[in-house]
Design a protein around this nucleic acid. Structure first.
Lengths: 225, 225
DNA sequence: GGCTTAAGTGTTAACTACACACTTAGAGAA
DNA sequence: TTCTCTAAGTGTGTAGTTAACACTTAAGCC
């Protein structure tokens, strides 16, 4: 573990990670925001996040902050952009790496918040007044989520282990903001090989739905027609 | 322009940008590397780049460094990843934002290098010994380039203003590393609406090729069949 | 057992992607 | 001037994919 042997003569910004933690509740995409208890922007809402420590990567920083603030390990966590406007933080030069994180609805996150601050799920279509440039970050985060939803099995990270095809369809509809055809959706989601039948059925007040879970090793089965 | 009113109690890493500047020469994808004149990694090759200044964004920093080192304004410059391993720079904690930049072949870049250092175009398939984690950055940069080539008109940034369809096809073949069918390529590239005929023809030793240039306002014409 | 609710299931038509070979225009040499 | 060489330019048929569309089935509940 090499120690610094040379001190740079350059201005060093503070470096943070900010996390867009999304979930889907009531067929609606929501994001976790924290009500700031201190200046600047006291009383406004902000993304969870915090400062990069000396011995961690940005990925590790984001995972740590998420765990500290929400008490959960996200099923999915990835960087999507960096924000570096010199005046984005009135306290001084700060750049931030923005992360996309996803959790299933109902993981009891809000109780375990470490700070006394108020954390809430906000529908992304009706955001409150936000601090810093966090509105821009959220806009970029939503776009990143939409863009990746068809490439990678992100929707699974927004669902509990056993879910029906109707549930996963509703996740897609909530994120993309438009209704999808049931039969076409089922055919295409199964063709991706991301999910497998559990053999279990959903208990409900109507015909039981087959439950699915994520394909364990990413090893898709083919030729099921 | 607010001044810092509060000093953070957090370790501040140095922040840099590193630039993967690509071009296509002799039907081959090449990247600009600089031979390091100083320790650490003296004599090895590195990406052009440098430190973030107080009053600039990361995008501005990358554009400035590129201009300083190569003397050109890139037709295309965009961030694609951040590298933050605590030990990636033996001199001390440094994180870097990696940028993808593209210039046409033959822009006389190397002459105008500001430093006395040696700058050269290296074929990406035969890279020399590299310093820091620059090999990883280049690998990620190539993947970013390939992924975006079909979404955005990046190939145009690798070509001079007047180019033939054969030239642009060779750019695609060089980046993707595989031959493409001439008729299918022409149909699909024209369908994207990124390029328009100039009315000029290429002077050569055979049948003259129609020259194209980028569609000025990104306004695609449709229904040309 | 009858009503309510959501699950589950196939076919056709339109479009897109892919494979494939010959003719043409100009340059330069004989 | 004609012949040769080189790369430009051009169309069709087929396979695969995507998009639109409605009824039957199974369980819960009264």
């Amino acid at each position: 573990m090499p120690k610094p042997t040379f001190c740079y003569d350059y201005p060093r910004p503070a470096v943070t990670t900010d996390i867009c933690l999304f979930t889907v509740v009531d067929d609606e995409l929501r994001i976790l925001l924290i009500n700031r208890g201190a200046e600047p922007f006291k009383g406004l809402w902000a993304l969870p996040g915090g400062f990069l420590q000396e011995t961690e990567t940005l990925d590790e920083c984001a995972a740590r902050e998420l765990l500290e603030v929400t008490g959960v390990k996200s099923a999915h966590l990835e960087a999507f952009a960096t924000f570096s406007d010199p005046h984005r933080d009135p306290r001084g030069r700060t750049i931030t790496a923005a992360y996309l994180a996803l959790v299933p609805a109902g993981d009891h996150i809000l109780q375990s918040g470490s700070d006394a601050e108020d954390a809430r799920w906000h529908p992304v279509r009706r955001l409150p007044k936000l601090s810093f440039d966090h509105r821009d970050i959220i806009t970029a985060g939503r776009q990143a989520l939409i863009a990746k939803l068809d490439q990678e099995p992100l929707a699974i990270a927004l669902l509990p282990p056993g879910f029906s095809l109707t549930q996963i369809q509703k996740v897609y509809e909530a994120v993309e903001g438009q209704p999808l055809d049931k039969r076409n959706f089922r055919r295409s989601i199964l063709a991706k090989g991301w999910i497998v039948e559990t053999g279990e059925f959903e208990r409900g007040r109507q015909r039981p739905a087959m439950l699915y879970t994520h394909q364990p090793s990413g090893q898709a089965r083919e030729g099921q027609g």
